[in-house]
Design a protein around this nucleic acid. Structure first.
Length: 460
RNA sequence: GGUGCGGUGGCGGAGAGGCUACGCAACGGAUUGCAAAUCCGUGUACACCGGUUCAAAUCCGGUCCGCACCUCCA
């Protein structure tokens, strides 16, 4: 299948035609999580963005191998293990599982391959040996470092010059480094730290090593079409991956197209663990139960390279739009995605434009099938329509409804009031019916009357 | 200091020389016992100053402001 997909390439800072290496089989690798804690909503952005791209690539080209790694060996994990007393593997397995569940709730499909760093230690050791043999890396006291100045085109991704890096070191340079920008490929582990035997003693890999080794292993040493991740990975992570892979492969490119998503911000500032201004996907899914799709949509309302300022209002807005589309596509069978939506997505994944086109389709009674198929290409309108109809969705869980600053209502007491109101309506006692409606409205419970005389309700 | 991304109506957010998206909110109307949903209709915009052009939100120059990376971070 032909496509006129255009992608902004960080390597050239230009929007370019996407030229697949093999148009019958696209290859993509995206940096995944370090599993030591819950993922925050900012961490979910690349997942949703690249999941959407994966859907488009599968639609346009048929076959895609999409890999997303799990970093399950890292100093942060070691710290977490010290704190909780749990074994490393207990922590990594737990948070890897939660990550997958949370991302699934955002309608993000599992990638085809989900490699774990600890399954690729042997490959990493081979890579490091190779880099030492080729003169790009050196060993000092159990550490192995990549010597940046040995690579002439280092800095091509982030537009950095080695001279500047050599001169402008801001951080204190570790004593074992030959030069300031050198980065760790392998580091020694103490007895209480996890480690693997290597030619340089017992130790563990540096952060960047795994991606190069895994891409090598999964894609047989071939250049891949797309490598993606968040903007903060451009330097040093992706720059260093390029350095490792290119030097090991005699200058062959690691990936042709480098894509980086913008940040999710809070009050205009990047959401990050260190700033403490984060909210986890897990919490958000608790708060907006069953609304994973609205959270997904919220992340797609801005172009992937632009910042998205997180707000609960954004999720509520997205939810309203989704409800409209759900209502419009009841009993509708998906046909084919509309050309307008496809064109928007093929233009550097312009999801806001695509959403606009969905709204256009929603206005046309004859295009409901296209609307459904197009929305599903974006990973939206994928759920049971009944779940989204009316408002039944929000409260289906039951239990206590906490309303800010007012009395608490339970699903039972609301149901009882609704039944009372239904009686009142039958008796044409509308003043009483309205009283109940207003009372519940003040508790942010909205009643919905249906043509058949029944009433459902939702928490707003 | 270097590198990159921005500043669009009340809000979110596309567009990138002429046709001034779209959504949310607001307002008016139809409909509804009242609401909700739906339908019809209305308004307000391109940070600032110059320049190029018949025509600039869009191109060029400058100014101001914001964010990010340069250290672990999606």
């Amino acid at each position: 299948m032909t496509s006129k997909l255009k992608i902004y390439n960080t390597l050239t800072n230009k929007k370019e035609d996407f030229k697949p290496i093999d148009p019958t089989h696209i290859t993509m690798y995206v940096c995944g999580p370090t599993v030591y804690d819950y993922a925050h909503i900012g961490n979910a952005r690349p997942v949703v963005v690249f999941d959407t791209l994966a859907r488009l690539l599968r639609h346009d080209y048929g076959k895609l191998t999409y890999a997303r790694n799990i970093t399950d060996i890292d100093d942060k994990i070691i710290e977490a293990s010290k704190k909780t007393g749990d074994d490393i593997s207990v922590i990594t397995e737990k948070f890897a599982r939660i990550y997958e569940e949370d991302m699934a709730a955002l309608n993000a499909d599992m990638p085809n391959v989900v490699p774990k760093a600890t399954d690729y230690i042997a490959e990493m050791i081979t890579l490091i040996k190779d880099l030492i043999d080729k003169g790009n890396a050196y060993e000092v006291d159990g550490h192995v470092l990549f010597q940046v100045s040995t690579m002439k085109d280092y800095g091509e991704l982030s537009n950095r010059k080695v001279e500047d890096l050599l001169a402008g070191a801001r951080v204190e340079v570790a004593s074992y480094k030959r030069e300031a920008p050198d980065f760790i490929l392998w580091k020694p582990s103490s007895d209480d730290q996890p480690g693997w035997d290597s030619p340089w003693g017992r130790g563990r890999p540096g952060w960047h090593t795994e991606c190069s080794a895994m891409i090598d292993g999964i894609f047989d040493g071939n250049t891949i079409d797309i490598h993606g991740g968040g903007q903060d990975l451009i330097f040093p992570h992706h720059e260093n991956e390029i350095a490792q892979s290119k030097c090991s492969h005699d200058g062959k490119a690691l990936a042709n197209h480098w894509m980086h998503n913008g940040y999710l911000t809070v009050d205009g500032e990047k959401m990050s663990k260190s700033l403490g201004n984060f909210i986890t996907v897990h919490e958000l899914l608790e708060e907006f139960r069953g609304m994973g799709e609205a959270i997904r949509m919220c992340l797609l309302t801005a172009h992937y390279r632009q910042p998205v300022d997180f707000s609960r209002d954004g999720i509520i807005q997205a939810r309203k739009q989704l409800i409209r589309w759900y209502n419009a596509t009841k009993e509708v069978e998906p046909t084919k995605p509309s050309i307008a939506v496809l064109d928007a997505l093929r233009n550097d994944l312009n999801t806001p434009k695509a959403i606009m086109e969905l709204n256009q389709l929603a206005k046309d009674e004859s295009k409901k099938g296209e609307l459904l198929a197009s929305a599903q290409l974006l990973g939206l309108i994928c759920e049971d329509h009944d779940k989204w109809r009316g408002g039944a969705s929000v409260v289906s869980g039951g239990g206590t409804i906490t309303t800010s600053g007012t009395a608490e209502y339970t699903t039972e007491s609301v149901d009882k009031l609704v039944a009372e109101r239904t009686e009142a309506k039958k008796e044409k006692n509308y003043s009483k019916a309205d009283e109940i409606r207003n009372d519940l409205a003040s508790k942010r419970v909205t009643l919905l009357d249906h043509p058949d005389g029944t009433t459902t309700w939702e928490k707003s």
